[in-house]
Design a protein around this nucleic acid. Sequence first.
DNA 1: CATCGGTCGATACACTGTATCGACAAGTAC
DNA 2: GTACTTGTCGATACAGTGTATCGACCGATG
Lengths: 233, 233
Amino acid sequence: MQCMVSGMLVWERPEPPNRPVPAPLSRERIVRAAIQLADADGLDAVSLRKVATALDVRPMRLYGYIASKEELLDLMVDAAHAEIRPVGDGWREVLRSLAEATRHAAHEHEWLADLLGGRPQLGPHALASGETVVAALGDVGVDAIMPVVAAVNAYVIGAVRREIAERRAERATGMDEKRWQASLGPYLERTFATGRFPALATVVRDAAHLDADHTFRIGLDFLLDGIEARISR
Amino acid sequence: MQCMVSGMLVWERPEPPNRPVPAPLSRERIVRAAIQLADADGLDAVSLRKVATALDVRPMRLYGYIASKEELLDLMVDAAHAEIRPVGDGWREVLRSLAEATRHAAHEHEWLADLLGGRPQLGPHALASGETVVAALGDVGVDAIMPVVAAVNAYVIGAVRREIAERRAERATGMDEKRWQASLGPYLERTFATGRFPALATVVRDAAHLDADHTFRIGLDFLLDGIEARISR
DNA sequence: CATCGGTCGATACACTGTATCGACAAGTAC
DNA sequence: GTACTTGTCGATACAGTGTATCGACCGATG
C-alpha cells in the first residue's frame, strides 16, 4: 500500500527523473550553486534556503560545510578571485592587468561589486593572485610594494562599485541609456534650474561624457603614473 | 476605576516621563534615529521596526515619509554628506580635503563604508559637496573634471572600505592589535609555511608596515601626482 | 541483543520588509 | 442634525530570512 503512487505499478511508473543520488555535497557545489543564484538574480537572491533547494537538500545540511552565511559569501568571493589572474611583464602591466581582470570579473558577477573590500580577503585564490602581483613588483622597493598594491586595489574596488551601481540604476529605469537620461534628466534639470549648483550644472551639461571603459582606464592611468613617478625617484 | 493606576491618586502619580507628544514625525527625525542606531550597532541594527520603536511610533507609520528601506539608507548617506565639506585653495587641496573629510566621516559612521558607492549619490548634500569640488577645479580643463573627480572618489571609496573592513576584523578578534596578530598570524604563518606564496610571505614578514593614516595618504598622493602630471601636460 | 554516544537535520524562533484592507475621520448632501 | 460617501492611515498579516535547539536515528560497543 505504501508503495502505491497514483495507482501506477512499478513497471509503468517512470524512474525518478534525474537526481536519484544528487551527488555528495561539498563546499564547491554549495558555492557554485550560490554563485549561480547570485549571477541570475543578484546577491539578495542568495539565501541558504534557496541554495539548499537548488542542491535538493534541506537548509541545515549546509551548516555541515559552512559556519554561517557570511562564510558562504567569503567563499563566493574567493571563488571569483580564481578567475582573476594578473599577467604581464613588469609591475605596471601586472597592476593594470589586475585592475582590468577584477573589473572584468565584476562585470560577469555583479554581486562581486557588493562584496569587494567588504572584508579582508585571505582565501587561497585571493592570496594566489596577491602572490602573482607581489612577485611581479620586485622592481619597486620591498617597502613600497604594500602601499602600491593597496592603492591600486582601493581604486579598483571603488571604481567598480560605482560603475556597477550606475549600471544598475540605469537598468532600473528601463534598460537603455535613453530612458535613463529621460528619467534622471528631469530631476537633475529641475535641480540645476534652482541655480544652487552652477559649476556642477555646467560640467554635466557641457563636458564630454566618457564611457565606462575610458573613465576606468583614465583613473587607473592617473594612479599608475603617480606610482611610477614616486618609485623611480 | 479606569483612572486608577497602581492605586496612586493623580496628585501623587508623576506625569508620564518625557514624551506626551513625541513631536511630529519628519524625515529628519527618522533619519537621525536610524543614524543613531547604525552608529551604535552597525547597519544590521537598522530595521524599520527598531527605528519606529526609537521614535515611539508603529512601523508602518514610517512609510508615510519614505517609500522603502532603501530610501532610508539613501537619506542616511546624504545626511552623512552634509558633514563632508571640502575646503582649500586650488584643485589639489580641495581634492585632498574631500578625500580626508570622507574618510573622517566614515570613521565616525562606519556604516558609511558599507553604503558608499553602492548607489548613485544625487541627494542635495552630496550634490553640494560635488559643487564645491567642481567649482574648485576650474583650473583643470572642463572635460578633465569628471574623470578626475571620479578617480578620486573611486580611490576614497575603496580605500575607506578596506580600512573599515580591516578595523572590524581586528575588533572581532579581540579589540587590540596584539590579539589580532595572534589570531591571524598563525593562519598566515601556516599558509606561508606551505611555500606557495613566497613573495607575499617575504613582503608581509619583512616590509615596513604602515599605519592606516599613512597608507591612505600615500595612495592619495600617488593619484594626485598622476593627475597633476596629466593636467599640466 | 541492549545500550550508549555522537551526529545530523527537521522543527521552531525571533526577526525582517512591506502588501493589504478594515477602521476611522473628514467632508458633503439632504 | 443626520446619513452617506470618500480618502487616509496604520494594525494586522504574510512570506521570507539566518540559525539555535534538541529529538531521532545510527553505528559501535558491552
